[in-house]
Design a protein around this nucleic acid. Structure first.
Lengths: 145, 145
DNA sequence: CTAATTGCAGACAAAGTTGTCTTAATTAAA
DNA sequence: TTTAATTAAGACAACTTTGTCTGCAATTAG
């Protein structure tokens, strides 16, 4: 599995938010936790991170919860993954070296450049707006079976 | 960083073996540990795994060490990565679900299929033979700077 | 045979990830 | 104003990954 649990939980939670009917405002974390089978307190921490990064907003108290901070058209999968796994998760060196570029390439640099650019392109194009409607229309899963 | 430390250490060690002159037989793990700056005992365990999987052979005692178990043309980067990270590391579901295919796709399935096939293709084509000569001819790095 | 050199095995430790629990702070509604 | 519902914060624990250490087993050189 390529992504950490934190990242998977974050992705699924954000996709859940994106697929909620627009008339819903703040959605309780408890609801997401139950629907997606993610440990509540763990999810709370992860979502707090996403809130600090500006992806979601939260409100305490009754009728509180979380909601997306931007329109779904302005949120893509890549930036959510990178906010959890680190900004250089896809752009970094495949051998983990901090300085690796065409001037000082690692042994796998050339081949990896092509792959990682493709990954970034595809995931960067994957906006929540399209994704959410696709999930709803085709009944795509956010849950383990 | 996409790969675990175990995997990076394994990759670099195998690439080191591939770039050694053919007249060298068994190469001491201590040498690899020093040259690549990888903790010795940790590396020993990782290489034991690779030996159990059939990628390398080892010999104890004086003049002992490890060597590749197959010709470099028959070893590629993909199988080494998968032997460390797990067979489904690249082929599995991006949301981590155990059952995810075209019949029961997860929310990101379609897009991810294209990317992961590309990754597997490229890394599967990356044989140690070509890689090693490229590393030697172009002086590519196996080390952090 | 002996000694030196190496990989092997397993206990242990340090650090990171994942998850649980309790309490506090905030908000809306009764 | 009280009460219920909710996020926030932080201590703690379980587990995994990463790394260290010690001694053992095998092999070769002398």
């Amino acid at each position: 599995m390529i992504f950490s649990k934190r990242c998977l939980h974050a992705l699924r939670a954000v996709l859940y938010l994106g697929t909620q009917p627009p008339e819903r405002d703040f959605i309780p974390i408890r609801e997401i936790s139950k629907k997606l089978d993610i440990p509540f307190h763990f999810l709370t921490k992860i979502l707090k991170d996403l809130a600090d990064k500006g992806f979601i907003e939260s409100s305490r108290g009754a009728a509180g919860g979380i909601r997306l901070a931007k329109p779904t058209a302005e949120l893509n999968v890549k930036e959510i993954i990178e906010s959890i796994e680190g900004e250089d998760y896809f752009s970094g060196c495949i051998l983990g070296f901090s300085k690796c570029d065409s001037d000082n390439p690692c042994a796998l640099h050339d081949r990896w450049v092509a792959i990682k650019e493709e990954i970034q392109k595809m995931l960067g194009e994957e906006h929540l707006e399209v994704l959410s409607t696709r999930i709803q229309e085709q009944g795509l899963r956010l849950l383990e079976m």
